[in-house]
Design a binder for these strands. Structure first.
Lengths: 204, 204
DNA sequence: GACATATCGGTACAGATGTACCGATCATTG
DNA sequence: CAATGATCGGTACATCTGTACCGATATGTC
C-alpha cells in the first residue's frame, strides 16, 4: 500500500518511486473536471487520460473521494504559492498598490480561454467543499491566503478597512468570474475591479 | 410521448394531466443536487425521492440532460419571479433605496441553513451552464433580471453608474456566498454589502 | 357506450462503474 | 547476491447506470 491516510506520499517523504504517476493522475483529474465535470471523474477515464493502467488509480488513491480531495489540495497549493510569490514581488517593486491589487487577482484568475478550463475546475472543486467537511479546511486556507495578500496591498494603498475591503474584492472577483463562466461571456474584469478597489479605498 | 422539445408542457398549455408528477420530479432533482451533488442525479434516485416509479422519469423527460436543464429553468424562473416582485414592492413603498438594494440580494439569497441547500443547487447548476451552451441562455436571463432590478434601485439611490455598480454588487454577493459555502462559515452579509453599496454610490 | 390517446408501472438489458485480487517486476537493503 | 517490500498491470465481479420496451389503466371525445 502506498497511501493509507489522505495524501501521505506528497508532503514530506523523499518522493517515492512512483510519485510521477501520482502527479500524472492528479493532473488528469483536474483536466477532466475542467473539460467535462466532476461527475466524469472515473477511475478508468483518469487512467486513460494519464496514460496509465486502471489499477494505478486504486493503488495511489484509496478511493474516488481521495482522488478528488487530493486534486483540490493540489490546485489550492499551486494557486496559493503563485499568489504569495506575486504578493512579495509587488511589495518589493514600487508598483502602484491599486494596480498591484487588481493584478494579484487577474494575474491568477483571468478569464482567458486558456484558463477557462482550470477556472471551471477550481469552482467545481470549491463547490464540492460545500458538501465535504474534509475539503472545507483547504478552502478556508485558500481564501485566507488571498485575503492576507490583498489586505496587505490594500493597506499600502490607503484603505482604512483593508480586511473588509479584501473580502469584498475577492468576493466580487469570484462572483463575476462565475457569472462569466455561466453566461459564456468573456470580458476583461480589470477595469471593473479597479473601479471597485478605488471606491473602497476612498471610503473613510 | 409527453414532451419532445425542451420543457413543452409547462409554459402555457392547459396543464396536462400528469403535470404534478413532472413538478415532483423536478423538485426531487433540485433536492438531490443540493444535498449530494449533480452527479448523484440518477433516474432511480430521482424517482425514489419523488416517490414515483422509475419509468416516470423517462416518460416526462427525454433524458438526464433534459431533466437537469428543466430543473435549472425552474429554479431560475422561481428566483427571478420572486425578485421582480420584490423590486416592484420596493419601488412603490418609500424604503430607503440602499436598504432596498441590500434587501433585494439578501432576501433571496440569505445564507441561512434552510436555504443552504437550494443555494448549493443554484451554484451547481450555474456551473453546469459553463459547460452546456443550452443552459447559458437561462443563466444570462437570470443575471439580467438581477442587474436590471439592482441598477434601477441603485439609480434611485443616487448612483452615477448604476449598471456597473449593479454588476459589482451582484458579483460580490455571489462570490461571498460561494466562499461561505465552501469554507462552511455562516455570517450575515448585509453589513458588508451595505458598505459596498455605499462606497459605490458615493463614487462620482 | 366505444375508441384513441395520454399516462402509468414493471421489467429487461447492455454498458459503465468502484474496487478487490493476484501474480509479475523493480529498487533497495542487508 | 538474496530477499524484502514497493510498485505495477491485468482481470474479475457485484452493482449501478441510462434507457428501451410492453402491457395495463386512466381520461377525454365522439
Amino acid at each position: 500500500m502506498a497511501t493509507s491516510s489522505t495524501s501521505r506520499p506528497t508532503p514530506d517523504a523523499p518522493r517515492p518511486r512512483g510519485a510521477a504517476r501520482r502527479e500524472a493522475l492528479l493532473a488528469a483529474v483536474l483536466k477532466i473536471v475542467a473539460e467535462v465535470g466532476p461527475d466524469a471523474v472515473t477511475h478508468r477515464r483518469v487512467a486513460e487520460v494519464a496514460g496509465l493502467p486502471l489499477a494505478s488509480t486504486t493503488y495511489w488513491f484509496d478511493s474516488k473521494e481521495h482522488l478528488l480531495t487530493a486534486a483540490l489540495e493540489l490546485a489550492a497549493e499551486r494557486d496559493t504559492a503563485r499568489l504569495l510569490e506575486y504578493g512579495a514581488e509587488m511589495e518589493q517593486s514600487g508598483t502602484d498598490p491599486l494596480d498591484a491589487v487588481v493584478g494579484a487577482i487577474t494575474e491568477c484568475d483571468d478569464g482567458s480561454q486558456a484558463n477557462r478550463g482550470s477556472l471551471i475546475a477550481t469552482f467545481a472543486l470549491l463547490l464540492e467543499a460545500a458538501r465535504r467537511p474534509a475539503l472545507q479546511q483547504i478552502a478556508q486556507r485558500w481564501t485566507e491566503v488571498y485575503l492576507l495578500t490583498l489586505s496587505r496591498l490594500l493597506e499600502r494603498a490607503g484603505s482604512a478597512h483593508a480586511r473588509q475591503d479584501a473580502e469584498l474584492l475577492l468576493g466580487a472577483t469570484d462572483g463575476l468570474l462565475l457569472e462569466q463562466l455561466a453566461s459564456g461571456t468573456i470580458e476583461d474584469l480589470s477595469p471593473r475591479l479597479r473601479r471597485l478597489a478605488a471606491a473602497l479605498v476612498a471610503q473613510p
